[in-house]
């Protein structure tokens, strides 16, 4: 174990790590998007350096106009707009995933930063913990 690791152990709650939540699944068809968001909300209390990445069908989590009454499920898309209040402000969306789906940033319910493949890859490489659900 390195000295840095030892210091992390001693620091305990004072450690700040880079956490990336990778969202690659569409909402409602499976529960992953909703339960991922639940981790983000709880995790916000831990004062870590949090980023959210939306790639592949994960971009569908952020689309405007979701109406879930007909399927009897809760529309959780407004929660993405509330993330700012939890100091979760780094939302990154993959440009190619948007383009492949005929979407652009204006179709999304929350302001995001759109990244190209190289930028997203560099973001991933800097992370300490990568959560995929």
């Amino acid at each position: 174990m390195s000295d840095e690791d030892m210091m992390d152990d001693e620091a305990g709650g004072g450690v700040v790590k880079k956490f990336l939540y990778v969202n690659r699944k569409a909402p409602y068809g499976t529960i992953y998007a909703l339960e991922s968001l639940e981790v983000v909300l709880i995790g916000a209390a831990f004062d870590q350096d949090v980023s959210l990445a939306f790639i592949d069908d994960g971009v569908y989590q952020l689309t405007k106009g979701q109406q879930t009454d007909g399927i009897g499920m809760k529309n959780f898309s407004p929660t993405y707009r509330a993330l700012e209040m939890y100091d979760v402000e780094k939302l990154y969306v993959d440009q190619d995933s948007l383009t492949a789906r005929g979407l652009n940033a204006e179709d999304l319910i929350v302001p995001v930063e759109v990244l190209n493949t190289t930028q997203m890859a560099e973001l991933m490489e800097t992370q300490d913990v990568v959560f995929s659900f």
């Binding site: 690659r24 592949d56 190619d96 493949t117 997203m120 890859a121 991933m124």
Partner: peptide, 15 residues
């Protein structure tokens, strides 16, 4: 699934 293709798109040289 598309997982491998996505992975290879983002995986950096040396990873």
């Amino acid at each position: 699934r598309h997982s491998l293709q996505s992975c290879l798109r983002f995986a950096q040289a040396g990873s």
